[in-house]
Amino acid sequence: MTEQTGQTRRTRHAWKRAAGAAAVTAAALTATAVPAVAAPADTRPAQAASVPAKPASAPVTASVADVGYETWQKDCRAVMDQALPYLRERIADTRPGEKQAIVLDIDNTSLETDFGFSYPQPANRPVLEAAEYAQDHGVALFFVTARPGIISAPTEWNLDHAGYESSGLYVRGFLDLFRDVAEYKTAQRAKIESKGYTIIANIGNSATDLSGGHAEKTFKLPDYDGQLS
């Protein structure tokens, strides 16, 4: 076999190997391009190895557009329609000398944070209505948020502008930024209780807003598997 003939054969083998690799790559791309709904759930492990799995109830992108403002307001209203009757009954049952308080989260609880992206942010109307009833009947409103202390002043102004009469705003200091959020918020509620208040309700849209106790009753607004902050 001449050197030229051997070179020709080696070239042919190289092209065959390249074509085979391209075919495998194309097949893999085709397989991952098939929408998830086209395959039964128990046939997807091979795909999950290359594409990180998302929670079953979460949309492809964590966008509030996947929820819609009207849906969010309706779902908030459903929760507060349970909270308001409770507040009326509990406030009417105030014990002598008792100082009642409500603790509220801010983002997508007291204020509409993820809808509109404006400043000042408007009040979340179903929550404001319950808060107004409470504050008109002598109940103190405390706001416990994961917002950093650097925006404390504009946050306080925004709450006042939206119609809330704040008796105290708790924001995260520098060291709090390194703490677990749920632990931080629980500690703030404990501080409020240490001032002699009975927290009759704790309202938020995340589990970190509500876990840890230090409230007679909790009300969770929707966050749609973490889509809303």
Rank of each mutant, 00 (worst) to 15 (best):
residue 160 D to H: 13
residue 160 D to E: 08
residue 162 A to M: 07
residue 162 A to G: 06
residue 163 G to V: 09
residue 163 G to T: 11
residue 163 G to Q: 06
residue 163 G to N: 11
residue 165 E to N: 15
residue 165 E to D: 07
residue 165 E to F: 01
residue 166 S to Q: 03
residue 167 S to I: 04
residue 167 S to T: 06
residue 167 S to H: 12
residue 167 S to W: 08
residue 167 S to D: 11
residue 168 G to L: 02
residue 168 G to A: 03
residue 168 G to R: 04
residue 169 L to G: 04
residue 170 Y to A: 09
residue 170 Y to W: 10
residue 170 Y to L: 14
residue 173 G to P: 00
residue 174 F to K: 09
residue 174 F to C: 00
residue 174 F to I: 12
residue 176 D to G: 09
residue 176 D to V: 04
residue 177 L to E: 07
residue 177 L to A: 13
residue 179 R to D: 15
residue 180 D to I: 09
residue 180 D to Y: 03
residue 181 V to K: 11
residue 181 V to P: 00
residue 182 A to P: 00
residue 183 E to G: 10
residue 183 E to D: 14
residue 184 Y to N: 05
residue 184 Y to R: 03
residue 184 Y to A: 08
residue 184 Y to G: 05
residue 185 K to L: 03
residue 186 T to Y: 04
residue 186 T to V: 05
residue 187 A to W: 00
residue 187 A to L: 09
residue 187 A to C: 03
residue 188 Q to D: 02
residue 188 Q to C: 15
residue 189 R to G: 10
residue 189 R to C: 12
residue 190 A to N: 13
residue 190 A to P: 00
residue 191 K to S: 13
residue 191 K to T: 14
residue 192 I to P: 10
residue 192 I to W: 07
residue 193 E to L: 01
residue 193 E to R: 15
residue 193 E to G: 01
residue 194 S to K: 15
residue 194 S to P: 01
residue 196 G to A: 13
residue 196 G to P: 06
residue 196 G to L: 12
residue 196 G to W: 10
residue 197 Y to S: 02
residue 198 T to I: 05
residue 199 I to V: 14
residue 199 I to E: 00
residue 201 A to F: 11
residue 202 N to E: 03
residue 202 N to K: 02
residue 202 N to G: 06
residue 203 I to Y: 04
residue 203 I to T: 01
residue 204 G to P: 02
residue 204 G to F: 01
residue 204 G to I: 02
residue 205 N to F: 11
residue 206 S to G: 14
residue 206 S to D: 11
residue 207 A to L: 05
residue 208 T to G: 10
residue 209 D to R: 12
residue 209 D to I: 09
residue 211 S to M: 11
residue 211 S to I: 08
residue 212 G to Y: 02
residue 212 G to M: 05
residue 212 G to H: 07
residue 213 G to H: 07
residue 214 H to N: 12
residue 214 H to K: 08
residue 215 A to R: 00
residue 215 A to D: 11
residue 215 A to P: 09
residue 216 E to D: 15
residue 216 E to W: 02
residue 216 E to A: 15
residue 216 E to R: 14
residue 217 K to V: 12
residue 217 K to D: 09
residue 217 K to L: 08
residue 218 T to I: 07
residue 218 T to M: 02
residue 221 L to Q: 03
residue 221 L to F: 03
residue 223 D to W: 06
residue 223 D to A: 13
residue 224 Y to L: 06
residue 224 Y to H: 05
residue 225 D to V: 13
residue 225 D to H: 13
residue 225 D to Q: 10
residue 226 G to L: 10
residue 226 G to Y: 10
residue 226 G to M: 07
residue 227 Q to F: 07
residue 227 Q to C: 04
residue 227 Q to Y: 15
